[in-house]
Amino acid sequence: MPTITYIQPDGAELTLDASPETSVMRAAVNAGVPGIVGECGGQAMCATCHVYVSPNSLEGLPEINDEEDEMLECTSAPRDPERSRLGCQISCGPRASLVVEVPAGQV
């Protein structure tokens, strides 16, 4: 099974097994990963699942659509032009692993 690694602002890391379709948000919420809230349940409506994707994990992710783009303008922590994504809009897909950093604040 592919894995998703969450790096906290203090450097602490947690790696979870996640099926290829399970979103970065859903896997985190199910496991209680701190700093990923996912209040809207994955509808790209709340911006509380914001993550910074690790540079090595960026390639091959789906394009940012309009809904994700406008919501990334509403995040609590600043948007990074390359690395910011909504955790509910990305998953491992065909890759073996995905590494994301959790921002310091979601609300």
């Binding site: 209040e39 409506m45 709340c46 609590s76 979601q106």
Partner: peptide, 19 residues
């Protein structure tokens, strides 16, 4: 301290008018 609250609900019915 900033913490999530539930005033706008959550999950599928998360308030459509939040913004």
């Amino acid at each position: 301290e900033k913490k999530p609250h539930l005033a706008f609900g959550g999950g599928a019915h998360f308030c459509a008018g939040t913004w």
